[in-house]
């Protein structure tokens, strides 16, 4: 398991860069992680990441549709916030595991 240093904290990540211990997450870590991939996180991003954390850590399956209904953004907006593969990026920056809703 790889170690990475974000904002002065050592965290362990899996081979795709997802945090393996969600409890280590902070907003600062999320911001640095996203910056590394060329994305500047705003408060709007962070609010959504917190929603995702709450949802995933309570054991619910996370879907793009659920995010569209979250009240923070609609699905189109979600794509604009995290261009390309929004669910994969957002879960990574939220410090939770990659969604595996298909199994």
């Amino acid at each position: 398991m790889a170690q990475k240093n974000y904002s002065g904290v050592n965290i362990s990540v899996d081979e795709e860069g997802y945090m393996t211990d969600s409890s280590q997450w902070t907003k600062e870590i999320a911001k640095e992680m996203a910056k590394e991939e060329g994305l500047n996180l705003t408060e709007e991003h962070i609010k959504l990441l917190e929603f995702i954390r709450e949802k995933v850590l309570s054991g619910s399956a996370l879907t793009i549709r659920a995010i569209g209904k979250s009240g923070f953004t609609d699905i189109k907006g979600f794509y604009q916030l995290f261009p390309g593969a929004p669910l994969k990026k957002a879960t990574k920056y939220a410090g939770v595991s990659k969604p595996s809703t298909c199994v």
Binding site: A61, T63, I64, R65, T101, C102, V103
Partner: peptide
């Protein structure tokens, strides 16, 4: 369209 689906 969306996951989850019956019998992935």
């Amino acid at each position: 369209a969306e996951n989850p689906i019956k019998c992935p």
